[in-house]
Design a protein around this nucleic acid. Sequence first.
DNA 1: TTAGAATACCTTGCAACACAAGGTACTGAA
DNA 2: TTCAGTACCTTGTGTTGCAAGGTATTCTAA
Lengths: 116, 116
Amino acid sequence: MEINTGIIENNKTQMRRGVLEYSILLILACGDEYASSIIQKMKDVNIIVAEGTIYPLLIRLKKLGLLNYRWEESTQGPPRKYYMITDYGREQLNELDAAWDELARGIETIRNGSKA
Amino acid sequence: MEINTGIIENNKTQMRRGVLEYSILLILACGDEYASSIIQKMKDVNIIVAEGTIYPLLIRLKKLGLLNYRWEESTQGPPRKYYMITDYGREQLNELDAAWDELARGIETIRNGSKA
DNA sequence: TTAGAATACCTTGCAACACAAGGTACTGAA
DNA sequence: TTCAGTACCTTGTGTTGCAAGGTATTCTAA
């Protein structure tokens, strides 16, 4: 219907992609979670992620040593794979915090320039 | 050498990617520029872009109707292709502004959650 | 006890896209 | 006329998000 949707939606998706790993680490820094709950928490702040994205991503982060996991029984279905952040993951998260701040500052600077 | 570099650099790149189109539109909203000067302006705020990225991207944005261009002689070399933002481009930019704000708010929310 | 729904995990194949590398063309100076 | 500087552009590669499809477990209701 709307012509705009394509371009804008595409770009919003693009923006989200950039912060996927970062936001997962942020969430896990707060406490252990399993895939579905991570997806939910991200949806709560309007960062949409698909299952097909998050599973490979968690596996990748595990391989890189940023995360670990443990199995835990659930009263409501099959067992859950709870991911937790490692010390190394926290180190990296600190750097990502800095990277995000730098990017946000950069955008802010350009934005103000375009007002002047 | 450093083990960290890969992961972090990779992620910084990833973050930058998400805002490439957005920051180009922001820059052009401020005034007409040619490819090399856009790259320079982005570098000034630590958003690194390669030539091989920016040329196809500008062509894409032109095709989408967000940009136009004109040729202009230079006293210092070959003619330059100055890009300018269209009215439609400005409309889209407004939406991207909103998208960026939303994303930044989302990240901020998760971040504060991890402090609590 | 079996059929279905709900929840959770995972994989495959495709498409988008940033970027390194390599290439063309114009200008001016040595 | 050769070289350096500037500007443009294209090709090939690798990464990666995601839609779609698949498996396994649990609980409920017929």
